[in-house]
Design a protein around this nucleic acid. Structure first.
Length: 272
DNA sequence: CTCAGATCCTGTGCGC
DNA sequence: TGCGCACAGGATCTGA
């Protein structure tokens, strides 16, 4: 489900209702996630106040009076507020119960996500410490990207999806940005000209910012915390459009596999 | 070091 | 209608 815009949309949806609240209970129905949930997470969170809600890469970070709660939604997760009487359904793995009785409920069929309580500074944690810059900050710019790309033979698409290079660029937005920049996703990262890297950098930023504005991309099952779908799927120009004509030149869009992920591209608009 | 591929898990949608 | 298969928005590990 989620890429960075979906996480950001989720964060904006849940933050106002979490802020300043006290946690009364953390109910874990399924602890086997990408990383097992702390066995004593209920004890660790109980009675603590939520003092901030932030995002780093695709992690939501709930700041408590002591420690932090990391939430990652993996490929199929979502969190929503439900009232106390709402019965838990299939794959409703965790409830964060607040003292006002509202429940932040986490559902994740594939269980690639995680919930983790950590005590020390998030940026030092092994899950976050190696991460590259946020795409919407000035730290992520064309000079940086060009430098990092030098001598890389890796396909440019895998390169921009590498969290050590830049975080938050998933399969959808990688495909969209490369199309808009006119770059073939298979081209070796080190072979891309500075001009194209400048264009790519700008399109990554623009695409993500637009998608956040639209409330994320709803393909099948993404709904923001308020239950509203995202509207960015209407804007997708290349992702999932293989075998259809390109919107710009009507050439039939091709697809290939890069890093195990399906990758659509227009052979005419993205020649190299 | 770099990179392709396998892996964790369940649901969906397609062709037969 | 039912079955089997391919594939899905992420991230990490292994091994060539």
């Amino acid at each position: 489900m989620p890429e960075l815009p979906e996480i950001e949309t989720t964060k904006r949806g849940v933050a106002p209702r979490l802020l300043n609240q006290f946690i009364s209970k953390t109910l874990v129905r399924q602890e086997k996630l990408r990383v097992p949930v702390n066995h004593d997470i209920d004890h660790l969170c109980k009675g603590k106040q939520i003092i901030d809600v932030t995002r780093r890469a695709k992690y939501l970070i709930i700041h408590l009076t002591e420690g932090y709660l990391f939430i990652h939604l993996g490929m199929s997760g979502h969190i929503r507020f439900v009232s106390p009487e709402t019965p838990a359904g299939k794959h409703d793995h965790i409830d964060l119960v607040l003292e006002n009785n509202m429940i932040l409920r986490y559902n994740d069929p594939r269980r690639f996500g995680l919930w983790l309580y950590i005590k020390d500074a998030p940026s030092e944690h092994p899950l976050l410490s190696h991460l590259g810059p946020e795409p919407l900050t000035d730290e992520f710019n064309s000079d940086y990207l060009f430098k990092r790309a030098q001598n890389k033979t890796q396909p440019i698409k895998s390169f921009i999806m590498d969290n050590k290079i830049v975080v938050g660029v998933g399969n959808i937005y990688a495909a969209e940005s490369l199309f808009l920049a006119g770059i073939n996703p298979l081209s070796p990262a080190g072979s891309i000209t500075l001009e194209k890297i400048i264009s790519l950098t700008n399109h990554i930023k623009d695409t993500l910012a637009l998608a956040i504005k639209a409330g994320g991309t709803t393909l099948r099952d993404f709904y923001a915390a308020d239950g509203k779908p995202g509207y960015f799927s209407n804007e997708l120009k290349i992702y999932g459009r293989q075998n259809n004509p390109c919107y710009l030149c009507e050439t039939i869009i091709l697809s290939t596999t890069i890093g195990g992920r399906n990758s659509a591209f227009c052979p005419n608009c993205q020649p190299n």
